[in-house]
C-alpha cells in the first residue's frame, strides 16, 4: 500500500457517503448537493489514479470534469422547482 492507495480508499469512502445521501435524501436540494460531491469524489479519484499509475492525460479529464460539474450544478437549480 502506497500513501496514494490509502488516499484513493478514503475518497472512495466519501463517494459512498454521497451515494447514501442521494438515496436517503430527504429533499431535492440534499440530493443535488450530494450529487455535486459525488462528481468531485470521482474527479479526486481520477487525479489520484493518474498519479498512482503515472498515466499522462488524466489532467485533461480533470479539466473537462471541472466544467461539466459546474454545468451540473447550474442545471440542478432548475430541477428544484417551486419559487418562494
Amino acid at each position: 500500500m502506497t500513501p496514494l492507495d490509502i488516499a484513493i480508499v478514503c475518497i472512495a469512502a466519501v463517494l459512498l457517503a454521497s451515494v447514501y445521501r442521494i438515496v436517503a435524501g430527504p429533499t431535492a436540494a440534499d440530493r443535488a448537493v450530494a450529487a455535486d460531491l459525488l462528481t468531485f469524489s470521482v474527479v479526486g479519484i481520477l487525479v489520484l489514479i493518474g498519479a498512482r499509475w503515472e498515466r499522462l492525460g488524466t489532467f485533461d479529464l480533470v479539466l473537462i470534469a471541472t466544467l461539466v460539474s459546474f454545468l451540473a450544478a447550474v442545471s440542478a437549480r432548475g430541477l428544484m422547482g417551486g419559487r418562494r
Partner: peptide
C-alpha cells in the same frame, strides 16, 4: 456551484 444550489434551495422554500 454550491452557492447556486443553496440559493435555489432558499428560493424554493427548503
Amino acid at each position: 456551484g454550491s452557492t447556486i444550489i443553496a440559493r435555489a434551495a432558499v428560493n424554493s422554500g427548503h
